[in-house]
């Protein structure tokens, strides 16, 4: 009998006001156990105030082979950044 517990990904909010960030993985049979394991493994040094756990197989990831098509086109759209626009030095609060 294969009893390897399924893999979960753990996301932790380190302080109130911040977003959850991926911190690692662990094994658990269900969401309840995954949450508690995450607490016991990943927050032993006050690393967090909130935990998300997600079954690893529920994550859909972009394919590195698509990287050019996905991410290159944004590269030359410099007009999306404030530094593209010229404003005289003496204009404040902009």
């Amino acid at each position: 009998m294969n009893t390897e517990f399924p893999l979960w990904e753990v996301f932790i909010r380190s302080h109130g006001g911040l977003q959850h960030k991926h911190v690692g993985s662990l094994h658990a049979v269900d969401a309840t156990m995954a949450l508690e394991n995450a607490r016991d493994v990943y927050t032993r040094r006050q690393e967090g105030v909130s935990i998300w756990v997600v079954p690893s197989n529920a994550i859909t990831a972009s394919d590195p082979a698509d990287s050019d098509a996905f991410f290159e086109p944004a590269k030359d759209k410099i007009y999306r950044h404030p530094t593209f626009y010229q404003v005289p030095d003496n204009v404040k609060h902009m």
């Binding site: 517990f5 662990l26 094994h27 658990a28 156990m33 508690e36 394991n37 016991d40 493994v41 032993r44």
Partner: peptide
């Protein structure tokens, strides 16, 4: 019985 359980018991 498993690493995660080991750590929980130690906590």
């Amino acid at each position: 019985p498993a690493l995660e359980i080991d750590m929980a018991m130690t906590n």
